[in-house]
Amino acid sequence: MQILSALIAGLVFGLGLIISGMVNPAKVQNFLDIAGSWDPSLAFVMGGAIAVAAPGFWLCGQRLKPIFADIFQKPAQSNIDGRLIGGASLFGVGWGLGGFCPGPAIVSVSVVSPATMVFILCMIIGMWLAKLVKTIRGSPATA
């Protein structure tokens, strides 16, 4: 049942990214370009998502455990450190340049275009490198 509900969640998540226009890198980059061809749509996507997720997560918090699993997995870290800010900064540069973040990039694998393939392959390599660095340098439990 966990697998089925994760599959449905992935599908609804992906369709949400498509319907909201977030799989279009031009739309994402235009949100980030207030000085140019600004498209505020991304703020509405975040707003819509948080408006549903905030009360939804609060309701989850009222339960002792998830429906099909034993525990709610909480991120282990609570401190704001250089790794968090450094990682978020590198992500911000890449997101600004390419207009893709991981969700829309994975959804776009199905389009099988050279541009999306190059981006995704490099993203996977980047993720793998960061995991290696964290393993070698040592890290607190990662989410």
């Binding site: 966990q2 509900s5 949400g16 319907i19 909201s20 749509s41 549903v52 309701l59 998830p66 709610f72």
Partner: peptide
């Protein structure tokens, strides 16, 4: 600019996140 489609798609994203948390934690 697509305020309604983006708000609706965003709500689906939020719903999916809650579904995953509620069922699998």
């Amino acid at each position: 600019f697509t305020p309604f489609a983006s708000l609706f798609g965003g709500a689906m994203i939020g719903l999916a996140a809650v579904l995953l948390m509620l069922t699998t934690g």
